[in-house]
Design a protein around this nucleic acid. Sequence first.
DNA 1: CATATTTGTGTCATTTTGCCACAAATATAT
DNA 2: ATATATTTGTGGCAAAATGACACAAATATG
Lengths: 247, 247
Amino acid sequence: MPQIFTFVFMDVQKFLNQGEKLYLPNVSVDIVILGFKDGELKVLLLEFEGSWALPGGYVGKDESVSDAAVRVLEERTGLQQPYLRLFQVFGDRDRNFASEFERLLKAAGYHWNKDLWINGRFISLAYYALIHIEDARPTGGIFSQPCAWHNLDDLPPMLMDHAKIALESRTQLKRDIGMEQISFNLLPEEFTMPQLHKLHERILERKLERSRFQKKMLSLDIFERLPEPKADAPRRKPFLYRFKKEG
Amino acid sequence: MPQIFTFVFMDVQKFLNQGEKLYLPNVSVDIVILGFKDGELKVLLLEFEGSWALPGGYVGKDESVSDAAVRVLEERTGLQQPYLRLFQVFGDRDRNFASEFERLLKAAGYHWNKDLWINGRFISLAYYALIHIEDARPTGGIFSQPCAWHNLDDLPPMLMDHAKIALESRTQLKRDIGMEQISFNLLPEEFTMPQLHKLHERILERKLERSRFQKKMLSLDIFERLPEPKADAPRRKPFLYRFKKEG
DNA sequence: CATATTTGTGTCATTTTGCCACAAATATAT
DNA sequence: ATATATTTGTGGCAAAATGACACAAATATG
């Protein structure tokens, strides 16, 4: 146990002391990792001293922005091929969270001083990710924080401007699913039309006529029906579909 | 004349020597400034030694990202209240243009050395701006480069990855005008439905049925018809419209 | 004054959408 | 075993939106 603690502690100190050399300054990547479970949109959050934050990180000096986003998502979920979209940039002049970092680091027993690189101003490149929640293995970061799913409609107290970022991601997602079919990334590889229907209702926060929705989706000709219906359904077994690869 | 040259020269040296202190490192802002004239979409470009670049700049350490974009646009056009949208981030690992800067600066008679801050890697925050072309006063930058409008469909040789950025802006604009009425920002304050019709045809690169287009636009109830028709029209004088402020 | 072009608007067929109906499938209750 | 309630797939029709064409008013040009 002491060994594990030391190991984690070393990681944090390395991060605080050497991050300046490893990462581009003034730029961060934050990811609203979205899942869908029990008929609710979920977002993956990390806890720090009773408040929660979005998974995030910094861009390596020899790493592309999109690779950084993929890496952060992989670190928190274990997933390798996520659907990721950069949906907004938060670039306010005073977007700097020195006082919050001071409080959190001191509370967690780490050294803090005002010259630490993380106290600077950061432009946040905000992504959302659409993942199948059951495939994710939520994993805390170098602080070994609790990492858990929360309802996007009912966020806990959030650090920094992360509540705003999370809510903006939903606004963008609402727009995006009208332009392009990406929502199925929130479902298992094989899914049913009733599942997709409920998902869209939750994203858009309004009722969608079931019959018309199903006809519309199938008319797009981007989903293929599988030979076997879904086995573990309570009543009539719905057909299973899969997104067609390559047109 | 020598005084002006000296003044400009000083500005460039200050920019090269002190930029590091004034601006956030590794982040740039590039703007695809779009206009519409003679039935063509135009983009404002700056010439450097026979090749052309998008207007751009850097984010002041005490300036928001969006203020930086507004400032860059104001510097090149004199316009104060542009329609601006951040449409993409170009963040490749090797997005660094040291060799192009070396060639350009040397050709223009400036000192160059590999440690200049502009030789670093830059993440480009790419905006497009929709402006009324007649209101703009194109103005070259600190290098007093030629600054001129070019057809977006027929770009001259471009520096860096700016051809890609310019073309991506059109892809995004095509999507955006289907979601929200923003295209009128490319027209004069008072415009006609035939003008708006031709504009949309140019943006979308396809024919749009005139009658249906006009009915559709008017049914949105976001434009108000002015009492007087457009005076300087060749045949039948079309009605003038204006975007309704505040709903 | 005739002609050609541009603009505004009407009409109608086609397509898409919203809404309801109903039967098939199937777990649960009786 | 049979009835019941729920879920799912699909049909049908009215309403709305769209596409295509028609045509007259306005007006510069010859």
